[in-house]
Design a protein around this nucleic acid. Structure first.
Length: 491
RNA sequence: GGGGCAGUAGCUCAAUUGGCAGAGCAACAGCCUUUUAAGCUGUGGGUUCAGGGUUCGAUUCCCUGCUGCCUCACCA
């Protein structure tokens, strides 16, 4: 019931509602259909600053400050372009209108105001209002003008209030948009075709992660939200496109923390007749281009660390990096038992893992990853944890794969893509074994994908870049929630 | 899932050892024709996250739950 709803309003909302009723009684529609606008706040100020005479300008926006001084009232109007001061004189707008402004208008209301642009005694460029009207009544008060909105939960749950009152929050999402635009421009300019592949999939794959499961009613079958774009994009290379990319949401059914949101944005691209070294260059160029677009420089500060994104980035093999940081040479201890013996001999505190590849990864994550502040490509990963990458000819335990890091963030992942259908099938079988052994994140076998490879895929370099992580790095945000408009909270 | 911290007016925050729950902004009633977080006078506004316990008395101490943050575990 509407009455119940109104009864639950707080006192300030009740008062605003009474004002709304008063306005309606007088025949003023508090939510008119349309508004007239000739200038944004910025346009009006810029025109005046250029020396133009600005008469009969119609502005529209939110009333964000009201300073009543008897027969004169100053206000500030905020629109999408910025703020401008309004000046209402009782003898200019009329005594009745002036009284209504003070009685029935509230901070937060959308108003239209018309008049000439002037300067005040203090020199502020100001709209001297001759006419004004209500454009949309605001029933709930906005956060306080000076301290703004600080409560983190409210900032995320009611992001509109955060955007309204926190300039830094608003800027982050403008920067995010610029970054994604720059990314598209860069890829488009390099001959990549932007494509769209299924979000809703009969079988998921392309990453080691648990999916969100859903159900198709008419087909009466399980469906999955994608965890990666990889396997569909590579089908497109079988189909003859040589460079494709997709910027899309992926979904992973995992824990939520400061670096992980269950739904996140990934850019994946694939380039025929290229390999993972091509992808390293692409990552460097992409980051340089996006940093330039977002920050105007390639030297950024992330969480107190100066980071230089200028190519070329450091390249180091996982073997060298793990040796350097943990003392374990994975080129010498090439099976699980001897690797474990070495770890024990060095008294390293590390969780035991079920396979050599996973144990190497654990060494890397524990000892090497925390040291990666400056941009770094970590090169050549264990085959067991990389089921879509080609083996190194001189060492079949390793694959041509790299991950990119900076500021302790994992920024991207790339391979020389596996295009041997029989090897791919064998990798799927190995994954199935790990799945049998209880690894919920091991890949399901995708025979349809193997079938695609049977028809031939060219030698290919493939890359995935975490867009949210890139935005974090380029806007100096420690939490992924600060770069996602509506991050996942617990409920 | 484990551990730690937090939740007080619309917003930002106080509240001594357990002793009448407060301030600024916002709101309401006034004064004020050049303000900039305008100023001045006055007024109203609280399920102190929820539920239980200890106590003469709980925002404060204890227990349970909810929510958030941090951290560990987990994490292509």
């Amino acid at each position: 019931m509407l009455d119940d709803f109104l009864a639950r309003l707080n006192d300030q909302e009740q008062q605003r509602y009474q004002k709304l009723l008063r306005l309606r009684e007088r025949g003023v529609e508090p939510y008119p259909l349309r508004a007239t606008r000739t200038h944004t706040a910025r346009e009006a100020i810029e025109a005046f600053t250029r020396g133009e005479t600005v008469r009969s300008a119609h502005l529209a926006g939110r009333l964000i400050a009201l300073r009543e001084m008897g027969k004169l009232t100053f206000a500030h109007l905020q629109d999408g372009s910025g703020k401008i001061q309004l000046m209402f004189r009782r003898d200019t707008v009329g005594a009745d209108n002036y009284a209504r402004l003070l009685k029935d208008f509230d901070l937060g209301d959308f108003v239209g105001a018309a008049g000439n642009i002037v300067t005040t005694k203090t020199g502020e460029i100001t709209l001297q209002v001759t006419q004004f009207e209500l454009l949309a009544k605001t029933l709930s008060p906005l956060p306080e003008k000076w301290h703004g909105l600080k409560d983190i939960e409210t900032r995320y749950r009611q992001r509109y209030l955060d955007l309204l009152s926190n300039e830094t929050a608003r800027k982050i999402f403008v920067t995010r948009a610029r970054i994604i635009t720059a990314m598209r421009q860069h890829l488009d300019a390099h001959g990549f075709l932007e494509v769209e592949t299924p979000v809703l999939q009969p079988l998921y794959g392309g990453a080691a992660a648990e999916p969100f499961v859903t159900h198709h009613n008419k087909l009466d079958r399980e469906m999955y939200l994608r965890i990666a774009d990889e396997l569909y994009l590579k089908r497109l290379l079988v189909g003859g496109y040589e460079r494709v990319y997709e910027i899309s949401k992926d979904f992973r059914n995992e824990g939520i923390d400061v670096k992980h949101n269950p739904e996140f944005t990934m850019m994946e691209c694939y380039q025929a007749y290229a390999d993972y070294t091509t992808m390293m260059t692409l990552v460097e160029e992409l980051y340089a281009a996006c940093a330039q677009a977002a920050c105007g420089t390639r030297q950024v500060t992330y969480q107190g660390n100066a980071i230089d994104l200028t190519p070329p980035w450091r390249r180091v093999t996982m073997r060298d990096l793990v040796l350097e940081t943990s003392g374990v040479d994975i080129g010498v201890y090439t099976d699980l038992p001897t690797l474990r013996q070495r770890i024990a001999a060095l008294n390293l505190e590390i969780e035991p893992k079920p396979t050599w590849g996973k144990q190497v990864d654990e060494l890397f994550k524990t000892f090497a990853e925390p040291t990666l502040i400056q941009p770094t490509f970590v090169v050549d990963y264990p085959e067991e944890i990389s089921p879509f990458a080609k083996k190194k000819p001189d060492n079949p335990r390793l694959v041509e794969r790299f991950e990119a890091f900076a500021g302790n963030l994992e920024l991207g992942n790339a391979f020389t893509e596996l295009n041997d259908p029989l090897d791919q099938y064998a990798r799927f079988l190995a994954q199935a074994e790990q799945r049998q052994a209880g690894d919920a994140e091991a890949h399901p076998i995708d025979l349809d994908f193997v079938q695609a490879l049977m028809h031939g895929m060219p030698p290919t370099g493939g890359l995935g870049v975490g867009v949210d992580r890139m935005v974090m790095l380029l806007t100096d945000q420690a939490s992924i929630r600060e770069v996602i408009l509506f991050p996942q909270l617990r409920t």
